[in-house]
C-alpha cells in the first residue's frame, strides 16, 4: 500500500512534477534528516545531505528506482547513507570523532514520535541491538552508520584486518536472529 503510493509519487517526480517532490519530501524529511544526522553528526551537514538526496531524486542522477530494487523507502535510505558517507569523506573529519555511540543506543528518553511506524520499527530494532554484546553493537555502528573502512574498524577495536568482515557478519547475524525472534513474538 505504502509502496504503491511512493512509486506513484516517484513516477510523477520523474515527470518533473514539483508538487510530487514536495510530497515525497514531506513524507521522508524527518526520517532522512534523522538518519543523516546520526551519520554526519551536525544538523547543518544533515540538511546538506538531505538536499543532495533530493537533488539526486529530481535529476535522476542517483540512479532510477524500480520495484526490483526492493522497497522505495530502503532505496532512498541507501541513497541517504551513501550520500552521508560521501559527505563525511569530503569533510575528512573522521579523526575528530570519538566513538561513543553505544550511549545513544541505551538512550531511554525516546522523544514523542508522531510517525508510528517509525517508532515501532525503532523500538524493535533498538531492542534487538541492545541484546547484542557491546562490542557487536560497536561494530555495527562503525560499519553501518559511520561507513568506516575495514582498516579503520580494525584499528579502532584492535583486531587483525582479516577478521573484520567476520566480525561484521557475526554481529549482523545476531542482530538478524534477534529481529526474527521479535517478529515471531509479534505474530
Amino acid at each position: 500500500m505504502e509502496k504503491m503510493e511512493d512509486t506513484e509519487v516517484y513516477g510523477q517526480i520523474l515527470k518533473k512534477d514539483k508538487e510530487a517532490l514536495e510530497q515525497l519530501y514531506d513524507k521522508y524529511e524527518k526520517l532522512l534528516f534523522s538518519f543523516a544526522l546520526k551519520m554526519v553528526r551536525s544538523p547543518e551537514s544533515a540538511e546538506e545531505v538531505v538536499q543532495e538526496v533530493m537533488m539526486k531524486l529530481w535529476r535522476g542522477s542517483g540512479g532510477i528506482y524500480d520495484e526490483e530494487k526492493g522497497k522505495f523507502s530502503s532505496w532512498i535510505l541507501t541513497m541517504t547513507r551513501n550520500t552521508s558517507i560521501d559527505y563525511l569523506r569530503k569533510q575528512n573529519r573522521r579523526q575528530e570523532e570519538e566513538v561513543h555511540q553505544e550511549m545513544e543506543l541505551q538512550d531511554t528518553q525516546a522523544p514523542v514520535e508522531e510517525i508510528v511506524e517509525w517508532k515501532q520499527q525503532r523500538e524493535r530494532i533498538k531492542e534487538a541491538m541492545t541484546s547484542l554484546k557491546q562490542e557487536q553493537q560497536h561494530v555495527i555502528e562503525m560499519f553501518y552508520f559511520k561507513g568506516y573502512s575495514q582498516k579503520m574498524i580494525a584499528d579502532k577495536i584492535n583486531i587483525p584486518l582479516g577478521t573484520v568482515k567476520g566480525r561484521i557478519r557475526l554481529a549482523l547475524k545476531h542482530l538478524k536472529s534477534e529481529l526474527a525472534m521479535e517478529r515471531g513474538d509479534w505474530q
Binding site: 524529511e29 534523522s34 541491538m129
Partner: peptide, 22 residues
C-alpha cells in the same frame, strides 16, 4: 537499509529547512 536507519533518534529538522532545500 530496511531496518537499521530506523535506529536513528527522531530529530526535528531545522527551521525553514524544507523551503531552503526545495
Amino acid at each position: 537499509s530496511s531496518d537499521l536507519p530506523y535506529l536513528s533518534t527522531p530529530a526535528d529538522p531545522p527551521e525553514g529547512m524544507k523551503k531552503r532545500v526545495l
